[in-house]
């Protein structure tokens, strides 16, 4: 569930507001998104993946965490490399190689007709 919206990092681009499939955010008066319908968050990580400045953090649990948890501590998340880690892993963002290009997909059959190894997929 979405835990952190960093007002310091946010550039008010509205991408998270638009991309959220359950309409969790509203644009706030200063452009920083408000968590108006947080209970509707489905933990899909789309807002985080689309944030160009890593201003959002989604915790990997489907319920809100207590206020004192480290998932709302921006400096802790930054220091431990967790902030922006999803975008880094999927290779989204300027100058990165999209994860789709690095993924190990199904191999084509060999010219001699031998069947390929089964793909690693879901």
């Amino acid at each position: 569930m979405i835990e952190l919206v960093s007002a310091e990092r946010c550039i008010a681009c509205d991408k998270c507001v638009k991309v959220c499939p359950t309409n969790v955010f509203d644009r706030g008066p200063d452009g920083v998104p408000l968590l108006s319908r947080r209970e509707d968050c489905q933990t899909c990580f789309q807002c985080e993946a689309n944030c160009p400045v890593d201003a959002l953090f989604v915790a990997p649990v489907t319920h809100p965490l207590p206020d004192d948890r480290a998932v709302r501590d921006e400096r802790h998340l930054d220091r431990t490399g967790l902030l922006g880690s999803y975008r880094r892993h999927i290779g989204w963002g300027h100058g990165r190689t999209p994860g789709a290009l690095r993924a190990v997909g199904p191999r084509l059959p060999a010219p001699d007709g031998r069947p390929p190894a089964p793909p690693i997929t879901s």
Binding site: F45, A59, P60, L82, S85, Y86, H89, I90, G99, R102, A103, V104, G105, P119, I120, T121, S122
Partner: peptide, 17 residues
């Protein structure tokens, strides 16, 4: 290594926990 490249979404939860 291949699983990490093919399924970053799967590992996201584990890495954060």
């Amino acid at each position: 290594a291949a699983m990490r490249l093919a399924q970053p979404n799967f590992f996201l939860t584990f890495d954060r926990l």
